[in-house]
Amino acid sequence: MPRPAVPFFLAVLIVIIMGCSPLAPVNAVIGEDTYRLLADQPYGDNERQMLDVYLPVVGLDEAPVVVFFYGGSWRSGDRADYAFVGEALASRGIITVVADYRVYPEVTYPAFVQDSAAATAWTRTHQQDWQAQPQSLFVMGHSAGAYNAAMIALDKRWLAAHDLDPGMLAGWIGLSGPYEFLPIINPDVKPIFHHPRTPKQSQPFYHVSPQSPPALLMAATPDKLVDPERNTRQLAEALHKADVSVETHYYESLHHLTIILVMAKPFQWWEPVVDEVHDFVMHQSANASP
């Protein structure tokens, strides 16, 4: 039986979150005893090329690593607002890196993808600082951040700039991501992707190959901002046709924002998003070489 629509108290919280202090009410109640924080780590020279690392308090040497990119239409976002993602995964034995990246109008495509690749490369290099033997590495994102993660996992150009290859990834995770959105309809996104001269190569969908890493794709069925049929389902079908391992989950009770919000400790009971991410990471880690 599908769950009912998002309850009233959660809808009210979303309204608060979208106000002047994004996600602060959520982060205020997650606690700090389930992880150790390495804050404000630079991976570049720009003030937005910074990341935070959430280390599990136990099992560090065996912990897989997830690099997380938030959404915000490539226009906004702050890694500190997503402490709840770091806590959710670190408390389950996953090292979690939450990265900022440059956004519009300071930059346009592909700078934010380049930043995401640089943050991933920084993480790969610094795993040796946290673990005796670097464990499996994943990239993950929500909304625009899921696009960033998809581009890193599917388009070899970005990691190649760091002498790396998507084959080093044990998998990638996308929550409500836009993976094929041409022609661009959203007026806020048009200048970011150089509309009407948006290159086809900017779309993750067109980079699927049999060498693509395993994927976990999740979406909210009622999502009106990023169409789950055109994006999540279409990409999953392309991966499947390429004989790439892909797992999908669709949630009728969630929406574009709540699919990431339910990773926070106060709301994890509503849908098992964080559990599905954990299970995917641990399963792929057990079947991959670091």
Rank of each mutant, 00 (worst) to 15 (best):
M1E: 05
R3G: 11
R3L: 15
P4L: 12
P4D: 13
A5D: 14
V6R: 05
L10I: 15
V15Y: 12
G19L: 12
G19P: 00
C20Q: 10
P22T: 06
A24N: 00
P25S: 08
A28L: 15
V29A: 06
G31W: 05
G31D: 02
T34E: 14
L38K: 08
A39K: 15
Q41V: 11
Y43I: 02
E47I: 07
E47F: 03
M50E: 04
L51G: 04
L51C: 08
D52N: 10
V53D: 07
Y54T: 05
L55N: 01
L55C: 07
L60Q: 12
D61T: 03
V66C: 14
V66D: 08
F69T: 00
S76H: 13
D78H: 12
D78T: 04
R79N: 08
E87H: 13
L89P: 01
R92V: 01
I94W: 08
T96H: 01
V97P: 03
V98W: 05
D100F: 03
V103C: 08
V107R: 02
T108Q: 13
P110M: 08
A111V: 15
D115V: 13
T120S: 10
A121L: 11
Q127D: 01
Q127I: 07
Q127N: 01
Q131C: 08
S136H: 07
L137S: 09
V139Y: 04
N148M: 15
N148S: 14
M151G: 02
M151N: 07
A153R: 01
K156G: 03
A161I: 05
A161Q: 13
D163H: 15
L164Q: 14
P166W: 10
G167Y: 05
G174R: 02
S176T: 11
P178M: 05
F181T: 00
F181K: 12
F181L: 09
I184A: 10
N186C: 02
D188W: 12
D188K: 09
D188G: 14
K190M: 15
H194L: 13
H195G: 00
P196H: 06
Q203R: 04
H207G: 07
V208I: 09
A215W: 06
A215G: 11
T221I: 14
D223C: 11
D223I: 05
P228N: 11
P228K: 07
E229H: 07
N231R: 14
E237G: 03
H240F: 07
S245G: 00
T248V: 15
Y251I: 10
E252Q: 14
S253K: 00
L254P: 03
T258D: 12
I260W: 01
V262L: 09
M263A: 10
M263G: 02
K265L: 14
K265S: 11
F267D: 01
W270M: 06
P272I: 12
V273S: 03
V273E: 03
V273G: 04
V274N: 03
V277S: 01
H278T: 13
A288Y: 06
S289L: 09
P290E: 06
